[in-house]
């Protein structure tokens, strides 16, 4: 009997490998976006991991210099109303921003995605009840909800993360459920049933891996959103308690002095928020394009 020769042109790689290979030689707008976003993010990661290597001063030391000194050679971004170094606070602030936003997004992913998976796959009454609950959370203005939860829980890193995660659970639920509704009708799921696989196995090995790309995209975009929400909560005094360096908190203090002509205490934390959000948005939107083959070349 004649045999077909293997024609394996590319080394066998999974999704991540394929993505890495593509990103090493970007050619599409989406891929450039991911690369740019990752580059920007790695700067923030470095700041968050090794702030003591980069920051020139102690971020909480009061009276390092004169109050509200404009940017100069000693304090590159000037000093705030307590004479603290803005540059150092901005650098240390990256740690809080990343920590809170990522843990919030992870928490909501861990809760929302499995619920969406089970709900979408099994359907029936469970699905109706869960969808109703999730839709009501989703319909609620998110920042208001976060404020309410944060107010109940009180300030603190963990509490802020929990408050933010609650508002994103419905996002994962809806996205994953929507994907699962499509995937469970695929022929390979029926093929799995034909070989005698049980529902949990089918969900784990057939449905979940195929829903993963959209989950990753939603995750990155959620982190971006969470950065903003965290800053918002801190701005309102419901977030990270002082003196921990936090961008939202610094924005609020900066607001008090901006009218007297000191622009720098509010400008630099603001820029940092914008850049970090931009980094995650670039990655998220870019990945969305790269991972969704329908948008790619014919």
């Amino acid at each position: 009997m004649e045999v077909e020769r293997a024609r394996v042109e590319e080394p066998p790689v999974g999704m991540v490998g394929l993505l890495l290979k593509r990103l090493r030689k970007p050619a599409y707008v989406g891929e450039y976006m991911v690369v740019a976003g990752l580059a920007l993010l790695s700067v923030f990661l470095f700041l968050a991991l090794f702030p003591d290597l980069v920051a020139p001063y102690d971020p909480i030391a009061i009276g390092l210099g004169p109050r509200l000194a404009p940017p100069n050679s000693q304090f590159i971004m000037g000093t705030d109303h307590l004479g603290r170094d803005v540059l150092s606070r901005v650098i240390w602030g990256a740690r809080i921003a990343l920590l809170v936003s990522t843990s919030a997004a992870v928490l909501s992913l861990v809760i929302g995605a499995p619920l969406g998976l089970v709900s979408g796959f099994l359907g029936g009454k469970l699905d109706r009840v869960l969808s109703l609950v999730m839709d009501s959370i989703y319909a609620f203005p998110s920042l208001v909800l976060a404020i309410a939860i944060a107010a109940v829980l009180g300030p603190g890193i963990a509490n802020v993360a929990i408050a933010i995660s609650v508002i994103y659970i419905p996002t994962y639920f809806r996205v994953v459920r929507g994907e699962v509704l499509v995937i469970r009708e695929q022929l390979y799921v029926e093929a799995a049933r034909a070989i005698g696989a049980k529902s949990p196995t089918i969900m784990r090995k057939y449905v979940l891996p195929n829903a993963l790309p959209s989950m990753i995209v939603v995750f990155t975009l959620n982190v971006a959103d969470a950065v903003l929400t965290e800053a918002g909560l801190s701005f309102l005094g419901l977030g990270i308690p002082p003196p921990t360096p936090d961008w939202g908190q610094d924005l609020q203090r900066g607001l008090e002095v901006v009218l007297s002509g000191s622009w720098h205490p509010i400008f630099f934390p603001g820029i940092m928020i914008v850049l970090l959000v931009l980094a995650f948005c670039l990655i998220g939107d870019g990945l969305g394009e790269v991972l969704n083959p329908r948008l790619r070349e014919p």
């Binding site: 066998p12 390979y188 029926e190 799995a192 057939y206 891996p209 195929n210």
Partner: peptide
């Protein structure tokens, strides 16, 4: 094209 799980070797 549809009967094999694209994420499995």
């Amino acid at each position: 094209y549809a009967s094999l799980n694209p994420r499995m070797k």
